[in-house]
Design a protein around this nucleic acid. Structure first.
Lengths: 225, 225
DNA sequence: CGCGGCTTTGATGTTCATCAAGTAAAGTGG
DNA sequence: CCACTTTACTTGATGAACATCAAAGCCGCG
């Protein structure tokens, strides 16, 4: 019933696989449920499996020398959270933690490698995804660092509205501290600027509940910040 | 005489190709010489060719909204400068410029794609390289942003000494302004801190000539900054 | 010789992190 | 379900790090 062949969450990444190859994946995969806050894999551990997010939301983070966490990316299903370094590195580069209750699959990494080696079109698709993800992370990082604090908050709010929720009203899946780790600022300043946006009637903010009121102005702050 | 089959600069990237496949590359490649300062490809242009640096040194940069350049990476031969976005994107994401006189090859991108589709082991090797390069760029970017200005200068000097020249004495291939673009600070502060390092007898600095004098202390500044 | 870009140093101002202290919210055990 | 503890959130005051501005010296090049 839960076979990869019939999985409605299956991504286009696997489109180039034959029925037989899909069955290989199916018989080498395991499905897991994790609750909010649970860790899926830990940076530094040896990679044995390819991690594929089916439902939910996770964060990829690394820990700096000073022990402070930095969130590299917030990933949704089909973002192939484990993909990034699976093919270059022996160890996970990032710790992956569920932001909401999530479901994911693990596929033996050697099985993935063998399929890629055997099926060049499949490998080429993985290539495309990896390039795309890396590219987005790099772009995001540079975007963040080129903006002032108000611009960063504006950007991240619009990003959540546009990419994650497709609505101007949403429930933030991150704490203020996590927001700070994602856009490289202190929790105090995240709060300060959110309050400022609320005072200026740009955004309705109550706890994690967010509503974008003046989208035009917010976009201006993002773009000029 | 200049065939890929005999090329002594050929990277391990092509190891998985058969003689016949190498010949396909050979007959679809073109070799170019560029002088210092010349541009190899421009961000935004359509990707038609895979760019492979044979000899020299180049910078990858993008231009921010404000028109200021940011250097994403300084690449040597075998760094596959064009690799990063070739497989995900229609357009070059970065402008590539020679920092010293350089030699590079262009290979038709469709030929590369076809070879990857046909030869899974080759595709898998490309995958490894892409992952590795992205990973390094991301790591470098985070490293830079987590350090104060003195730490950044120390880091970049040690990086040049270790990775690029394998010597504590070398000629900087970048201007002060370019250095600033690479490590996200202003040219004034690059100069200020270089002068400071010279005053403290950490580094001999005269124009582009650099000599690391107190490596231990410089490493400490890098790691603690 | 003189012009323009690169380099250097100093003075000033802004942005942001840090510190401190208090309030709300969310678990936790009885 | 309520007191208790802990964690998250919020605001203000202070200081440090860094960008910006200004001005002068240097070097290569026409």
């Amino acid at each position: 019933m839960d076979s990869c062949q019939n999985c409605k969450f299956r991504s286009k990444l696997f489109d180039k696989l034959s029925e037989e190859e899909l069955e290989t994946i199916n018989s080498n995969k395991q499905t897991y449920l994790v609750s909010k806050g649970e860790t899926i894999c830990v940076a530094g551990e040896q990679i044995k499996e390819f991690v594929y997010l089916v439902e939910g939301l996770v964060k990829l983070q690394k820990v700096g020398r000073d022990g402070k966490a930095q969130i590299v990316s917030v990933a949704r299903p089909l973002d192939f959270v484990g993909l990034l370094t699976v093919f270059s590195n022996q160890d996970y580069q990032y710790t992956i933690t569920a932001l909401v209750d999530s479901r994911f699959c693990r596929i033996d990494i050697d099985v993935m490698r063998q399929l890629a080696a055997k099926n060049g079109l499949f490998a080429l698709d993985i290539l495309k995804y990896i390039s795309k993800i890396s590219d987005e992370i790099i772009r995001h990082t540079y975007a963040i660092n080129s903006k002032n604090l108000r611009g960063r908050i504006a950007m991240i709010l619009l990003d959540f509205a546009n990419k994650h929720f497709e609505s101007d009203t949403f429930l933030l899946p991150l704490s203020r501290k996590e927001l700070a780790e994602l856009i490289d600022m202190t929790p105090e300043n995240v709060i300060r600027i959110l309050s400022e946006f609320r005072r200026d009637n740009l955004v309705y903010v109550k706890g994690k509940q967010i509503e974008i009121i003046d989208r035009k102005l917010l976009e201006k702050i993002r773009d000029l910040g």
